[in-house]
Design a protein around this nucleic acid. Structure first.
Lengths: 348, 348
DNA sequence: TTAGGTCGCCCTATTGCGGTA
DNA sequence: GTACCGCAATAGGGCGACCTA
């Protein structure tokens, strides 16, 4: 090891000013005339040290610019005060809210956020988890593409899911069933009697949920529902999705997400199909841009930042005093339909 | 903690199957009949171990499921194999490309990415750096809002800047000067003789560069250039910016970024101002949405993912064998103008 | 007894130096 | 002298056990 320090014949480091080697509890203890353990307790268990001593230690620490080394702290305890967030696709604006919310809450708890992108790959997702397992106190997985069983195989890791539910794990999702019902009621009230679902990735739990909810709600209201796809959940995927929707002769298309929905709108514009005069389009997520595409997209908005924050809370709470097993919580946050120009009365 | 189950008088750990305590070099060393140092070297400095021994160690390690503990590895060596990326505003889609590129490259190098949001605050930025300094091998700061001197005070940390240049530090930026020239030439060729710059945050280095480049290019081509603002670089800020632009009687507005530009377009639409018939609008960044707002936004696109990747490369290369001081590199990547519907011939 | 303080081992890997063929 | 390998110090702090007024 050898700190590189008071060496005159300089090596690696630049300028002056900054202290070479960061102060440790040893330095603080020596300067304060105390044992290192006393210094340690001052920071990690302050009640076990007298007020006088505590202040003294703080003063000396401040003066020396001492800051506990998080690594040294984490090594024996196993607590890294770090959380990993793994998202299915970092380019999808849908995740930005989740990332932002999680980052915020993680910081608020004095933790650090590690970010990983699984690029829609369940394998990469699992690899991420394995590689980070020792460096992290827990995982947050948003829109996991792993199969339920694969998730269970990771059981030994502390894990909270976002927009995915698996028995035995904490999760935070937006209310797909109620949200989807809002979509279908809206379309029904506009006189539509049939709709198509432009499906998302086969491995997406959310896609399955949405389709299921759509079909159920449609039945309840006497509409027919058809599933087309799957399509890649990107703007690019909207081209094929739009054409498929046209082929189906329906009057209303519900896209798996806004990315796909906006892609559909573009394709319709290219082909001269009127929205909503010829066909209505609905999306999910209310992503950035859904309000200024043309026509603006009717979509199901969810509290995604809150989802991120709640995910962190669930994860961190699991370490609480009552660490009696996982006691998983399945949180469901409300969604609400944002009606914009892409939906209108059924033609004819 | 605690899986919910079988342990009778159990303590911490769960189920069957999984090995209780992860294997350490001690376990491997014992099983292989070697010293821990040999095992350690097998993984961290393979050439210093004979091929026979190496294979033996690998075999034993494999069998025991041994994986080096990254924390324990980092403590004595000081190398955490982790990089922190700090962005000025995580909600600005502009950064997504950078984040994605950085994440990709960091992973490719076998490192881990920590993400921080400074919320446009130089103080928070500095705090981030301080708090993470011990946990990270280096920092990537995108669009830093810190003053040059504050950045220099962080000198002891390994640091690479994205979209910001400071003497003595490595950086990767897009070519503002040339890019801005493209904008001005485009406007000049359409017959515009005056333009306004709708300015970004006062503390943004980029905003200063853009204005400077704009003024220089305008002069060279005989256009007048006026700066208005600053405005918050958000869609919301576009309202005031649009009104200010109208007040100036100009025929062309260059917005600090696309977020602001799209906000301007919306406001113009509300007020019945024709774009580009009454006024042309240009943005910077070519963010998600710039191609489907109405009218689609003419904007200066840059290779942002590449910026993220390059930033990581510069940072990691700094640790190379020739660790002769920082030897900073200032990388400048080309920008190109994407012409869309928001710019047209000057009216009249 | 209790509050304040001290000792010394724990965690897991790295690495300089020295020893053995 | 050259390859290999092992000993033991080191990194920095947590924490239980024990000691003193």
């Amino acid at each position: 090891m050898q700190q590189q320090d008071p060496e005159p014949a300089g090596e690696t480091e630049p300028v002056a000013g900054a202290p070479r080697r960061p102060a440790t509890i040893y330095d603080v203890a020596r300067a304060a005339g105390l044992a290192t353990s006393t210094v340690s307790r001052t920071f990690s268990n302050p009640t076990r040290v007298s007020a006088r001593t505590r202040e003294h230690v703080h003063a000396v620490a401040e003066q020396l610019g001492y800051q506990p080394n998080p690594l040294a702290r984490a090594l024996p305890s196993g607590r890294t005060r770090t959380v990993a967030l793994i998202v299915a696709d970092i380019t999808n604006p849908h995740f930005f809210g989740i990332i932002r919310g999680a980052e915020e809450q993680v910081r608020a708890a004095g933790f650090t956020l590690i970010l990983g992108d699984s690029k829609e790959s369940p394998e990469l997702e699992a690899r991420h988890v394995e590689q980070l397992s020792r460096s992290v106190d827990g995982f947050l997985i948003a829109a996991s593409r792993m199969a339920d069983d694969s998730i269970r195989e990771l059981a030994s890791h502390r894990l909270t899911l976002i927009n995915r539910q698996v028995d035995g794990y904490s999760s935070a999702i937006v209310d797909v069933v109620d949200g989807t019902r809002q979509i279908v009621e809206h379309l029904a009230s506009l006189g539509h009697t049939s709709l198509v679902y432009l499906a998302g990735p086969r491995r997406s739990w959310l896609a399955a949920q949405r389709w299921h909810a759509l079909r159920t709600a449609a039945r309840a209201l006497g509409l027919t529902a058809t599933r087309l796809g799957p399509f890649p959940p990107t703007m690019h995927g909207g081209g094929a999705a739009a054409d498929a929707a046209l082929g189906s002769k329906t009057t209303a298309a519900v896209a798996h997400n806004d990315l796909l929905g906006i892609g559909v709108l573009r394709r319709f514009a290219e082909r001269g199909v009127g929205v909503p005069s010829d066909i209505s389009v609905v999306g999910y997520d209310d992503i950035f841009g859904a309000d200024f595409c043309s026509p603006p997209l009717t979509t199901l908005a969810g509290p995604f930042e809150e989802l991120g924050r709640a995910g962190v809370d669930l994860l961190l709470r699991a370490r609480g005093p009552e660490r009696r097993g996982p006691q998983p919580q399945q949180l469901v946050l409300p969604a609400h339909l944002v009606i914009r120009g892409s939906t209108g009365p059924a033609p004819g």
